[in-house]
Nucleic acid binder design. Structure first.
Length: 485
RNA sequence: GCCUCGGUAGCUCAAUGGUAGAGCAGUUGACUCUUAAUCAAUUGGUUGGGGGUUCGAGUCCCUCCCGGGGUACCA
């Protein structure tokens, strides 16, 4: 970046002054004895510590300086006196800028106002910051800057940092939970010749040596099922999917998906798995099963209670509740009329009956399912990769788990009949000339054990657990339009 | 893609069509227990870009760029 201003010039001048004084402003190494947070947590008067971090505040009091440095664990106050560090070192500390990195040696003590601090005996400049940090009090509010320069957001806004540290522990606890149950974690191809497992437009990329296009995966499903065929009976992957669609508060073109498959299980198995997993994660990460979403003033705007057992509701019952008890007895024309006139939703004249019904579900019902709800008995037309329900052949053995008004996870009793599977996929491909994944169908013909499978949108799960409102607030670097030079 | 709101100093924000401002940060000085330290002085602007209306535009109009919200696409 070419842009310079007074503040940057000043910092460059301060950098030059350090060099002038014979100090390397970018040290190679400093080894802290512990983190800032640990130094405070294990307080013992006079205990010697070495701490390092970014300089986040500095108050000069004549021959004394109070300053805070901050690392991942938190911050600690440094107490620097001219008498303790010597005239030259004192002068140089005075010349440090906010956001510089510093390592300090000294003894722990408590100030008169009761704050645990380090009485510095000597310190090292670890890295000079050549650009001014965001406002120390107001933080960084400009959303575009927060996303484009997330590191500034993390520096300036503790809540944001906390959210992303928690996201990391959520994923760790999911892994722990699945490992505990004997699941094997695998990695499958991201670049695929035929993108399958979902109906979404893929991103296209190109392989030079093969001289042909590849697609970024839109789902993990078909490869994980090949592994069920291969004898890995409990298998999961946490990875990125890519869908070439619009961007919104709920959609990022690349997003993180967990898919898990369990041989000899069915959708009921996955129901228990999901409920136990989310309760485990919530307890471990948040210490509670009651999630509160707060507005900027800290008022609770939404409460989600994850305490088991979660509600179960049949798809058709929910639709009848919203659209009328006679909904499924209506003629196609009557149904369409009611949807547009009474329910005020847009309906494409080309849409089939089940699509009109599903529009009612997605637009009017799903957003109201704030508390965890397993929606079951979905119509078979909606789900080509699941098995039919023996008790009701119009339905599939599937649930969609909705929490916070969003679909968090669909789960199936997976289709393992290769002949039916081929028919369903051929129907689905229909006129679109979409290629069938023959290799997958061949795999099924070798025999896949009956299995339950589930897909969990990790980003949406994080939105829910962490009380956020937008997917951009749980993805470190959400997709934005590139800035043209 | 469409609708709508927004973009002013490094950051957070003001400014009826009439001299572009404040707080923080920065700079200089004072202060050996401060913590949004305090006190005094002070620097800093192509008002997102381009065009237009006007005696005069941050403000009105057109256009482009970027972002927020909504909507569409998304088994």
């Amino acid at each position: 970046m070419e842009d310079t201003n007074q503040l940057i010039e000043q910092r460059r001048a301060n950098l030059a002054a350090l060099a002038e004084a014979g100090i390397d402003p970018f040290a190679n190494k400093f080894t802290p004895s512990e983190t800032c947070g640990a130094a405070k947590a294990n307080y013992e008067e006079e205990r010697l510590v070495a701490v390092a971090g970014r300089l986040v505040s500095k108050r000069e009091m004549g021959k004394t300086i109070f300053a805070h440095i901050k690392d991942t664990s938190g911050s600690i106050q440094l107490f620097i006196r001219k008498n303790d560090v010597g005239e030259e070192a004192f002068k140089i500390f005075k010349g440090l800028d906010l956001a510089d990195f510093v390592g300090a040696n000294g003894a722990l003590f408590t100030t008169k106002t009761g704050e645990i601090s380090v009485k510095v005996t000597d310190y090292v400049v670890l890295a000079k910051s050549l650009r001014p940090p965001p406002d120390k009090w107001h933080g960084l509010a400009d959303q575009e800057l927060r996303y484009r320069q997330r590191y500034l957001d993390l520096i300036a806004n503790d809540k944001v940092r906390d959210t992303f540290l928690k996201r990391s522990t959520i994923i760790r606890e999911i892994r722990n939970f699945l490992n505990e149950r004997g699941y094997v974690e695998v990695e499958t191809p991201i670049m695929q010749a035929i993108p399958g497992g979902a109906a979404a437009r893929p991103f296209v990329t190109h392989h030079n040596t093969f001289g042909r296009d590849f697609f970024m995966r839109i789902a993990l499903e078909l490869y994980l099922k090949r592994l069920l065929v291969g004898g890995i009976d409990r298998v999961f992957e946490i990875g990125r999917n890519f869908r070439n669609e619009g961007i919104s508060r709920r959609h990022n073109p690349e997003f993180t998906m967990l898919e898990a498959y369990e041989a000899y299980g069915d959708y009921e198995t996955m129901m228990e798995l999901l409920q136990s997993m989310i309760c485990h994660v919530s307890e471990k990460v948040l210490g509670t099963m009651v999630i509160e979403q707060k507005d900027e003033e800290g008022n609770v705007t939404k409460t989600i209670d994850l305490t088991p057992d979660w509600r179960r509701a049949k798809y058709k019952d929910l639709v009848r509740e919203k659209a009328g008890n006679d909904w499924f007895e209506l003629t196609t024309e009557q149904r369409r009329a009611r949807a547009t006139e009474e329910l005020k939703i847009e309906v494409d004249p080309e849409e089939a009956d089940f699509e009109v019904t599903n529009a009612v579900f997605e637009k009017l019902i799903e957003p109201t399912l704030i508390q965890p709800t397993f929606v079951t008995h979905l119509p078979k037309e909606l789900v080509p990769l699941a098995k039919l329900s023996p008790e009701d052949p119009d339905c599939v053995e599937v649930f969609e788990c909705c929490i916070n008004g969003q679909e968090i996870a669909p789960a199936y009793t997976e289709q393992n009949n290769p002949i039916e599977q081929r028919e369903r996929l051929e129907q689905q491909a229909g006129g679109e000339q979409q290629k069938l994944d023959e290799d997958f169908l061949v795999a099924l013909e070798h025999g896949m054990p009956p299995a339950g499978g589930i897909g969990i949108g990790i980003d949406r799960l994080c939105i829910m657990l962490l009380g956020q409102e937008s997917i951009r607030d749980v993805i470190l670097f959400p997709q934005l339009k590139p800035r043209e030079e």
